[in-house]
Simulated scan of single mutants.
Amino acid sequence: MQAGAVRTTDTPPVIAVVGPTGSGKSDLAVSLALELDGEVINADSMQFYRGMDIGTAKITVAERRGVPHHLLDILDVTEEASVSEFQQQARAVIADIHARGKRAILAGGSGLYVRAALDVLEFPGTDPAIRRRLEAELEAGGAAPLRARLEVVDPVSAGRLGDARRIIRALEVFELTGRPFSSFMPTREYVQPAVQIGLDVDRGQLRERLARRVHTMVESGLLEEVRTLDAAGLRLGRTAPRALGYAQFLRVLDGESDAAQAAEATIVATRQFARRQLTWFRADPRIHWLDWQDPDLVAKAAARTVPG
């Protein structure tokens, strides 16, 4: 167990509402909070960013229905989201909510962030100097030499990681800690009592819903939102400019695409992301799956959260 983590049976379990993008996680989390006297903690890494509202389908103040929401709008677009910092913040918020006799409800589709909040999971530190040196090596010689080095010191990670950014991170961790990056992989062990509710979707219906949602975002001013954020330094960030919709509509601003093409590219990318999310969450046997369109969804989800 990590330092600072406390196992206790004196408080009810943390609730996590998970599933693919567009499945209704935010709405269910609010309904559960109203039913169970709870508060919601955001676990969508792109909803950390101030001003990224339309393109992330960020829940509005009206849609929150008076339920307190935590860890929304906590970063500028120039800042980098950090799963290790989120872990500390989320656990502190959970402890505060429980200390006030409320129920803590985590909601979001960023799988690693959910696990960081819920599971026994250790994050190695970072070293900017090592990172810069490895990035310089990548620029000078490409990814192949770095991958070859990783295969020697951490063959498990070398077999799992595809992109250069993750290879650099794995080598950085090994140099910094002397341990292979793969040794830090999470185990499916809750750091405190928890229950996960997964929204089981009809994939065909979800595909259509995601397409409609992107078109609604465009009609609601996504391009102007991206233009405003671009002026605020969106491209300077490491995380925010890669967000779904934002990356595609930055190309419109650059004259490399038009709005219709950007919308279609966003739909394709969002559907691919939803498939990856489903694969991630389906791999966790602890999740209780409920039909996303069940008229008794809230009652059934609430019943799952009763301790014992």
Rank of each mutant, 00 (worst) to 15 (best):
T8F: 10
Q192G: 00
T266Q: 09
D202W: 00
H98Y: 07
E80S: 14
E79M: 12
Y246F: 15
Q272T: 13
E175T: 03
A262Y: 02
D200H: 06
S31M: 14
A29H: 02
H69S: 13
T239R: 11
A116I: 04
V218E: 13
L161F: 03
A240T: 14
R147T: 07
M1T: 11
V195S: 05
Y49N: 06
V120R: 05
A92G: 09
V298M: 13
L34A: 06
L146K: 01
V18G: 03
R65A: 10
L118I: 00
G101K: 09
V14F: 04
R91I: 04
D119F: 09
L223I: 07
V40E: 07
A260I: 07
A164G: 04
H288W: 01
S82C: 13
M185L: 13
W289P: 03
A231T: 04
L138E: 13
A117V: 01
F123L: 04
R203G: 06
P186S: 02
P68L: 12
Y49P: 05
A299N: 04
D202K: 07
D44F: 10
F249C: 09
R179V: 03
L199F: 09
P128D: 14
A265P: 10
R209H: 08
Q248H: 09
S45I: 08
Q293T: 12
L229M: 09
R275P: 06
R238D: 15
R133C: 02
I74P: 05
I197E: 04
L253V: 00
V201W: 03
A136V: 11
I15F: 05
V153S: 00
I97N: 02
R7W: 15
P307V: 04
E224G: 00
G101F: 04
A116F: 08
S257P: 00
R276K: 14
R131K: 13
Q293A: 14
F48R: 05
D294C: 03
G108P: 02
S45A: 02
E224H: 03
P145T: 07
G245H: 12
